[in-house]
Amino acid sequence: MHPHERDHGHSQDRDHSHGHGHSHGHGEHGHSHPTPPGFKGFFYGIFVPHSHDAADSIDDAMEAHSEGIRALKISLVLMLATTVVQAVIVAFSGSVALLADTIHNLSDALTAVPLWIAFVLSRRVATRKYTYGFNRAEDLAGLFVVLMIALSSIVAAYEAIDRLINPRPMENIGWVIAAGIVGFLGNEAVAVYRIRVGRKIGSAALIADGVHARTDGFTSLAVVVGGIGVLLGFPQADPIVGLLISAMIAVLLVGTVRSVGRRLMDGIEPELVDRAEHALDHLEEIESVERVRLRWVGHRLHGDAILRTGPMTLTEAARLADKAEASVKKHMPNVDEMAVRVTAAAPGV
Rank of each mutant, 00 (worst) to 15 (best):
H4M: 10
H4N: 10
D7G: 05
H8I: 08
R14Y: 05
G27K: 15
G38N: 10
V48K: 02
S51I: 03
D53L: 03
M62V: 14
E63T: 11
S66T: 12
L72R: 00
I89P: 02
I89F: 11
A91P: 12
G94S: 10
D101P: 06
T102A: 12
I103D: 01
N105K: 12
L110W: 08
T111A: 09
A118T: 08
F119M: 14
L121M: 06
R123V: 15
A126W: 04
A126E: 09
K129Y: 13
K129H: 07
Y132K: 08
Y132C: 02
N135Q: 13
A137P: 13
L140A: 15
L140Y: 10
V145P: 03
M148K: 15
S152M: 08
S153H: 06
I154N: 14
P167V: 14
P169Y: 04
M170L: 05
M170S: 09
G174V: 07
W175K: 04
V176E: 08
I181F: 07
F184A: 00
E188T: 03
Y193F: 04
I207Q: 01
R214G: 02
V225R: 01
G226S: 04
L231P: 00
L232T: 04
P235C: 02
L243C: 02
I245M: 05
I245Y: 00
M248E: 01
L252C: 08
V254I: 08
V257H: 02
V260C: 09
R262T: 09
E271Y: 14
D274F: 14
R275D: 10
E285S: 11
R295F: 03
R295S: 03
G298F: 01
R300I: 00
G310H: 05
M312S: 07
L314D: 12
E316A: 06
D322Q: 11
P333E: 02
R341E: 13
V342Y: 09
T343Y: 08
A345P: 14
A345F: 11
P347A: 11
P347D: 07
G348A: 04
V349I: 09
